[in-house]
């Protein structure tokens, strides 16, 4: 069974293939009735152990536009709260007959465990600090739409790299597509050991602003303050936040990206989110098409199951 767990497993060719499929689904999404029968009879389950309304809605919209049946396993009100193990949950859902599981979990590695236990296709919709491959697919898709090619392009990822699955997947995806990635963060927000990471690291945002094609701002989570990873949100915003003055120093054609939800006034000033080179809503729109592409890539190649009897000698 094919899964989508991490970006490296795709390679540059895999990313390109999903992007090509996404082109077709962008077109579908522009139609008056944005729906195709491709995955009719298939069942896609969203299994979100950690809340993420945005990502869940994006996947469910994608599945519905492909005519798949969708089920939401809402952990907050389910047996998981009563102590059911992930493995038992998976076996329960599987017994209902499903084709794909979209999983979000607060612990790194859970989608790999599920892939070992399940015969359905597993899509990692974010595991702990580790990977969020569909986010990176839609981010690189969006960046390609503006820049044409990522070969030799410079991408700065700014902020809390250490705790970010978005950063880990995007570093892999942008690098695979030929871009140079620079991380902009204080040491406290960097992973402790970057040996073998294909990145350059700086702590001065102003030093790279004029030099980048993509400025990717990460969400700064407020709970990081209590861990003294930065002294205050105010100091973080001053060192690493994008304000109007810094935005003006971006090169022509450079785009500003953010995975959402944005902390206005922290990583991005409230009055610049409407600037034309801030492509955040485009990321969200592309997210549906890219997730349709992923579902099609995983499920579309197999014949749709029928209820006909198998021949006796098959």
């Amino acid at each position: 069974m094919k899964h989508l767990l991490a970006i490296d497993e795709l390679g540059a060719d895999g990313i390109a293939e999903i992007h090509r499929l996404a082109d077709a689904f962008v077109e579908v999404n522009r139609r008056p009735i944005p729906k195709v029968p491709t995955l009719r009879g298939r069942t896609v389950v969203s299994l979100f152990f950690e809340d993420s309304t945005r990502t869940r809605l994006s996947f469910e919209t994608a599945a519905k536009r492909l005519s798949a049946d969708t089920m939401t396993f809402s952990v907050g009100t389910s047996s998981v709260k009563k102590g059911e193990s992930v493995r038992d949950t998976i076996e329960t859902i599987e017994a209902m007959g499903i084709d794909a599981i979209v999983v979000r979990h607060g612990s790194a590695g859970v989608p790999w465990q599920i892939a070992r236990w399940s015969s359905a296709a597993v899509i990692n919709a974010g595991d702990g600090w580790h990977q969020h491959p569909t986010q990176a697919l839609l981010d690189t898709y969006t960046a390609l739409g503006h820049l044409g090619s990522l070969d030799g392009r410079r991408v700065a990822i700014v902020g809390d790299i250490k705790h970010s699955r978005v950063a880990r997947s995007n570093i892999a995806a942008f690098t695979l597509l030929g871009a140079e990635v620079v991380l902009v963060a204080p040491r406290t927000l960097l992973p402790p050991d970057l040996t073998d990471w294909p990145v350059r690291v700086v702590s001065d945002l102003d030093g790279v602003l004029g030099d980048v094609d993509v400025l990717y701002l990460l969400r700064m989570q407020r709970e990081r303050m209590t861990e003294s990873l930065v002294p205050s949100l105010r100091e973080y915003a001053r060192r690493f936040g994008l304000d109007r003055e810094r935005a003006a120093r971006l090169g022509d054609g450079a785009i500003v990206m953010h995975p959402g939800p944005m902390n206005r006034g922290v990583e991005i000033a409230g009055d610049i989110t409407e600037l034309p080179n801030v492509v955040v809503t485009e990321q969200v729109a592309n997210g549906v098409a890219v997730r349709m592409a992923v579902l099609f890539w995983l499920l579309g190649a197999d014949p749709v199951p029928t209820h006909e009897e198998e021949p006796a000698d098959a």
């Binding site: 590695g109 702990g128 580790h130 992973p191």
Partner: peptide, 15 residues
């Protein structure tokens, strides 16, 4: 262990 593998795997490390 806090190191290259914990950084890659996104698992909090013990230094």
């Amino acid at each position: 262990h806090e190191g290259a593998w914990s950084s890659r795997l996104g698992i909090p490390g013990i230094p």
